[in-house]
């Protein structure tokens, strides 16, 4: 690890000022320190925000306000989350290990970096790590890589499970800018697709600090998070689906779906949600939904399996949520 200057933020303005001056925020550190040890990132200045008052989970605006420093464990175990947003608890509990969830924060989880093997290996070219150096994932090992939303410069996936559930739930972020003002942004508008600038992953500006995630009021119907991975625990998603389906009189009254492991950001396709609403659940409908979702998919040789895997995982999830509930 390269040496760096370390300082501890006393309050939010302190953190924002350091951040605007080029410091890298450290909170849980589980991802950042791993990357610093590998010299994938080499910050010269770290600002530790763990002493800031951003650890509260509270009811707000009919929904839930989650401080950026709330740990993944505390969020998954929170009574309201388990009862009213179970998809979020499930997504969190399907990620990482007990030790990591105790450290990892809500804000940090959103900003974790890709698990692309080439990004993680500082000896390899990578357009995300070193813009313009090339991409060896293209034509290389692509088991974890994107089939949707990638570009000729980058096909890395976003690794978070939590962010997929929050995208499905249409969560928003409260961000404090370098002028000290807070602004709200939908998570669905937070991540950028790689295009020819894969090193720019979000719409955050220098000096921005994520202060909170805000969940909208609990919605009706049933919700679930289904994750497919190479081992039963402690592995990143090959494919995952976060879904909420509300049924009324045998038809789908409302639907929201988001997908993980398949794209550079938690994937939400409004056309998929629209296609389901008003319809009677059927195998034919679910096949049409998968067709729309996968329209434009551009798999590599090493991840072509994700096309049928996503189709089947989507179908299984919709079958589960549309099944008659035994009385």
């Amino acid at each position: 690890m390269r040496s760096f200057h370390y300082e501890r933020a006393a309050d939010t303005p302190d953190a924002v000022a350091a951040c605007a001056a080029g410091a890298t925020i450290i909170a849980g550190g589980t991802n950042l320190l791993d990357l610093m040890k590998r010299e994938v990132v080499q910050p010269e200045r770290l600002i530790d925000i763990t002493r800031l008052d951003l650890r509260t989970i509270e009811s707000a605006e009919g929904g839930l306000s989650i401080g950026a420093l709330v740990s993944n464990s505390d969020l998954a175990a929170h009574r309201d989350v388990r009862r009213d947003w179970p998809v979020l608890a499930q997504a969190l509990l399907s990620g990482a290990s007990g030790q990591l969830r105790n450290k990892a924060t809500t804000g940090g989880n959103l900003l974790q970096r890709t698990r692309c093997y080439y990004f993680q290996d500082s000896a390899m070219p990578c357009n995300k790590r070193e813009p313009g150096s090339g991409c060896h994932a293209l034509g290389g090992a692509t088991r974890l890589h994107a089939i949707l939303g990638g570009s000729d410069a980058c096909i890395a996936t976003h690794p978070s499970d939590m962010a997929v559930a929050m995208t499905m739930l249409d969560a928003s972020l409260d961000i404090i800018g370098k002028d000290g003002a807070s602004r709200r942004l939908r998570l669905r508008d937070f991540y950028r697709l790689p295009g020819d600038t894969p090193h720019i992953e979000t719409v955050l500006q220098p000096g921005d600090l994520i202060a909170k995630v805000v969940l909208p009021p609990p919605a009706g119907g049933r919700q679930t998070y289904r994750k497919v991975r190479d081992r039963a625990s402690y592995a990143f998603a090959l494919v995952s689906v976060a879904a909420r389906i509300e049924l009324a009189e045998g038809r789908i009254a409302d639907a929201s779906l988001a997908f993980g492991g398949i794209a550079p950001r938690p994937w939400h396709d409004p056309a998929v949600d629209r296609l389901l609403v008003g319809e009677v659940p059927s195998a034919a409908l679910f096949a049409r939904v998968a067709d729309v979702l996968l329209d434009g998919a551009a798999p590599q040789e090493g991840n072509a399996f994700k096309v049928p895997l996503l189709r089947r995982t989507l179908t299984a999830t919709l079958n589960e949520l549309c099944r008659e509930i035994p009385q």
């Binding site: 450290i26 550190g29 589980t30 320190l33 791993d34 740990s71 990591l100 105790n102 450290k103």
Partner: peptide, 9 residues
């Protein structure tokens, strides 16, 4: 809380 002591300063 249990944590990985290798991943924290």
């Amino acid at each position: 809380r249990r944590i990985n002591s290798c991943l924290t300063l």
